[in-house]
């Protein structure tokens, strides 16, 4: 295995984030603080507790998921799309690197960034609410798996996209609505029955539910369902990437 090659991609990607620290770190943290102020403090103070959890605390897992999913997708998709855009993928393809190593480099960096931001948001939330995490190890595991999965998804989007518009279409028009409607700010049973059933078609519901279970021991769906779902999601992304690299789709001429 070309470990130096993987490390080179990883460090290069991380350095790119450090060069754009405001965009990479400050911006998502600021957005989350604004969500806390608006939903947690302003609106949340007038909301009833949900399953004995205050609304301010309740939205923490959803806010973390919202941010890490978007960050994972954006970082990974831009990470591989930018070399495609400026034409430097020739370097990756002509180097003694396997496709798995290329994916580990890019997805590893995107995962690290999203995971770090998730932890920073969690730390920031303690400025507003006092949360006790019921299953901390599971929380870390679930957060990490979500970051990896959405980074893989972002990598696929970056490979498939031909321009910046396409690069933004999936995150903006598909992932953002699904995340907002996936129970970040409410539980599914707060919806009318028809919409409850409809919401169960949204894959993000299972992820937020599982992550919330790690915090409070409560969720919209059983935890095992959430775990199976994310593992299926991860496997699907790995399968698509395997196909892309096997066929050279949108990578090799």
């Amino acid at each position: 295995m070309n470990l130096r090659g993987i490390r080179a991609i990883y460090i290069y990607e991380m350095n790119r984030s450090f060069r754009t620290l405001i965009q990479s770190l400050v911006s998502p943290v600021l957005s989350t603080i604004l969500y806390f102020i608006v939903f947690g403090a302003a609106i949340g103070s007038r909301m009833e507790n949900i399953s004995n959890v205050s609304y301010g605390e309740f939205i923490v897992p959803g806010l973390i998921m919202l941010t890490v999913q978007m960050q994972s997708v954006n970082n990974a998709s831009f990470g591989i799309y930018f070399p495609k855009f400026i034409g430097t993928t020739y370097e990756l393809l002509s180097a003694p690197l396997s496709f798995v190593e290329i994916v580990i480099g890019y997805v590893g960096a995107a995962t690290t960034k999203a995971f770090s931001i998730g932890l920073i948001i969690l730390a920031t939330s303690y400025l507003f609410v006092n949360i006790e995490i019921m299953h901390p190890f599971f929380m870390i595991f679930f957060l990490l798996l979500t970051c990896i999965t959405f980074s893989l998804l972002g990598f696929i989007i970056g490979i498939v996209s031909d321009n910046f518009e396409q690069l933004n279409i999936v995150p903006m028009l598909i992932i953002t609505p699904l995340v907002f409607l996936g129970g970040s700010f409410y539980t599914i049973d707060m919806l009318p029955v028809f919409w409850q059933n409809f919401a169960l078609l949204n894959p993000i519901v299972y992820l937020i539910s599982g992550f919330r279970w790690a915090f409070f021991g409560i969720g919209d769906v059983p935890i095992i369902t959430s775990v199976i779902f994310i593992l299926l999601f991860t496997s699907s992304c790995v399968g698509v990437i395997w196909y892309i690299f096997k066929t050279g789709y949108r990578i090799k001429n």
Binding site: R4, G5, A8, E91, A95
Partner: peptide, 9 residues
């Protein structure tokens, strides 16, 4: 970066 991609120290 290019050198590292080729697995060189």
């Amino acid at each position: 970066f290019s050198r590292r991609l080729f697995g060189k120290k």
